[in-house]
């Protein structure tokens, strides 16, 4: 176990040095700071002009309750909106990162060099997966939470926030799984980027409107489905749609990652 952890640590250092050299991580975090802030502000700004003046039927307790409820919903919505904005940006960035970290080493010979050292292929791939998922999902969730708590004073609906965070992780995992699969099958960075972009366009356009069944929308872009669920409306998914969508996305992503690992294990370098 200790040896395994030591190998993971060494490979993480190697990956960080090779693929996430300055200013890659800094660039990613800066984009996520901007995106999450934008997401929170886009909801926060809707408070401006909110009418709290007492009318002839003024009921202070009821108004305060409505206001508190409104603010809780708003804060939750702002948090989810921040996650959605970040995820949409990450849907664009993840194929680029995967092309750079998984496909390019096939092309430039770096993988051949690394695999000539006593490095386990599955450990190497696991490290790459964990690193990319951590570097994208942790800042997304953390920055969204920081922006929301800083800009909107109220309590958060923890249940919805949890579902949204899980949906974000699953969305990122889904995008990563598709890009990684394309990278390992094609061994080409250009093909990885193209596949990723096609999926990005699909999940950021088709999900709006009545083109696809709601469950499929929730599968393709779980975090957007959570947002629609909170906002409500004609095309809003139910909680069961959400559960089915998130679970399906998770299963598809895990299957793709497992298949990719198997393919990578047999890949000719």
């Amino acid at each position: 176990m200790r040896e395994r952890l030591s190998e993971l640590r060494k490979l993480s250092c190697l990956e960080l040095t090779l693929s996430y050299r300055f200013p890659t991580i800094e660039f990613l975090v800066a984009i996520l700071v901007f995106s999450s802030g934008l997401g929170v502000l886009s909801i926060g700004m809707t408070s401006i002009g909110m009418n709290l003046n007492p009318d002839p039927y003024y009921n202070a307790t009821q108004t305060t309750e409505h206001y508190t409820e409104h603010m809780v919903q708003k804060k939750t919505l702002a948090y989810v909106q921040a996650l959605v904005t970040c995820t949409n940006v990450l849907f664009f960035l993840i194929p680029l990162f995967v092309a750079f970290t998984v496909a390019r080493p096939f092309e430039d010979g770096t993988l051949k060099t690394i695999l000539s050292y006593p490095v386990n292929r599955s450990t190497l791939m696991s490290v790459r997966t964990l690193l990319l998922l951590s570097l994208t999902s942790i800042p997304t969730i953390a920055l969204s939470a920081v922006w929301t708590s800083t800009l909107i004073p109220s309590d958060l609906n923890i249940g919805y926030a949890m579902i949204a965070s899980i949906a974000t992780l699953v969305s990122i995992l889904m995008m990563y799984a598709i890009s990684q699969f394309a990278a390992i099958i094609s061994k080409k960075s250009s093909a990885t980027v193209i596949v990723g972009m096609i999926f990005w366009i699909m999940v950021t356009t088709l999900i709006y409107g009545p083109f696809l069944p709601i469950t499929l929308v929730a599968t393709l872009n779980p975090v957007s489905a959570v947002f629609n669920f909170i906002v409500g409306g004609e095309y809003a998914p139910t909680i069961s749609d959400l559960v089915v969508g998130i679970s399906s996305a998770l299963v598809i992503a895990l299957c793709l990652i497992a298949t990719s690992l198997k393919l990578f294990f047999k890949a000719e370098v």
């Binding site: 090779l18 430039d108 010979g109 770096t110 051949k112 060099t113 000539s116």
Partner: peptide
């Protein structure tokens, strides 16, 4: 030592 090796 590979032919035309690539190092970071």
């Amino acid at each position: 030592l590979h032919e035309k090796p690539t190092y970071p």
